[in-house]
């Protein structure tokens, strides 16, 4: 177990280093921060001083090492667009994105798994077919269009839910949450559904396919022969054995959720990191882009690690010492 974790972590290090190199290369070769920061009116002495201050007179790999070192300490420089430390900007917006992603994942799992189990068990029922058609539409609709449709129906026509922002937010020193107020919760519904819908349909189809597979297997027949109740068979035996692929996909989809939160946050003007990233891409704000990239890659590596560890928890066959 310990060796497994160590080898996984060691595999992850080059990924982060490569992504860091790309992020740094963006810094080094895209645009000229000196001219951007100095504006139009400056003397040669000022320019040289700034070059020295930013460390741009040193060799490439020294600068890269410094960049990674600073990144390790959570320092990514200053945003060209907002003239504030990137770390502060990201830290301010992280709660919004994480709360959104968390709610969307919980929504996807809580609705997707039961629907998958239901359509797997009663696969010929009329309601199952309706669910399947619904899921096909869910997979084909692009995220931003789902958001627009939801806004049109619930905010413009029915006027029951807010269409942008986080609503009322309770602020703590390092965190701001929308979970504690009615306004905040209401503002969370549409974005979370938009973001979670694709994952939900994916999980539902996956659970259904796995259930169909498992329900045909011998140990289910044997469990029936032993006279176990339907409930125990469906949930204790069948569902449990579908969980490994579901955890893989759901885990890897957390990455997808973070990426698509960029789109969802733009549609709903949700003040999270994704919106910050899009605004930065539009004006080529390299420090923010680089920081976001490094952060996302670390996050993805962590998610992959956790997914691998969850296998161990769920599937006893993997615990056999090789």
């Amino acid at each position: 177990m310990f060796a497994f974790i160590v080898s996984r972590v060691l595999q992850a290090v080059p990924v982060v280093l490569v992504v860091g190199l790309i992020a740094y290369a963006m810094f080094a070769f895209v645009g000229d921060p000196v001219t951007i920061m100095l504006g139009t009116d400056y003397t040669e002495a000022q320019r040289v001083a700034l070059v020295k201050q930013l460390g741009l007179d040193q060799p490439f790999f020294v600068q890269y090492a410094k960049f990674m070192w600073a990144a390790l300490h959570g320092e990514f420089g200053i945003s060209y667009r907002l003239a504030r430390p990137v770390t502060d900007l990201l830290a301010e917006r992280m709660p919004a994105t994480l709360e959104l992603a968390l709610t969307a994942s919980v929504f996807a799992l809580l609705i997707g798994v039961p629907m998958g189990v239901y359509t797997g068990i009663y696969r010929t029922a009329f309601s199952s077919r309706v669910f399947m058609i619904f899921s096909l539409i869910g997979v084909s609709l692009p995220t931003f269009l789902i958001g627009i449709l939801l806004i049109l129906v619930f905010s413009v026509w029915l006027q029951v839910l807010p269409s942008f922002g986080r609503g009322d937010v309770v602020r703590f020193p390092h965190w701001s949450t929308g979970f504690l107020t009615t306004g905040g919760l209401k503002a969370l519904i549409l974005p979370a559904v938009t973001l979670g819908l694709f994952q939900m349909t994916l999980i539902m189809r996956l659970v259904r396919a796995e259930m169909l597979e498992v329900l045909r297997s011998d140990y289910i027949k044997f469990a029936r022969a032993r006279g176990l109740g339907t409930r125990a068979i469906n949930f204790g035996h069948a569902l449990r054995n579908t969980l490994v692929p579901v955890i893989t996909i759901a885990g890897l989809q957390i990455g997808g959720i973070i990426a698509f939160s960029i789109v969802t946050e733009t549609v709903f003007q949700w003040p999270g990191m994704g919106l910050l990233f899009v605004q930065s891409v539009q004006v080529a704000d390299v420090p923010v882009m680089a920081a976001y990239l490094v952060m996302i890659s670390v996050l993805f590596v962590l998610i992959n690690l956790v997914v691998d560890l969850l296998y161990y928890a769920v599937d006893p066959r993997l615990r056999v010492v090789r």
Partner: peptide
Amino acid sequence: IQLTFPAILIALLVDGVVTA
């Protein structure tokens, strides 16, 4: 490595870098 990142994120990033 690239496959671990969603395609849309890569496209967005490349677009931003090339434009810059």
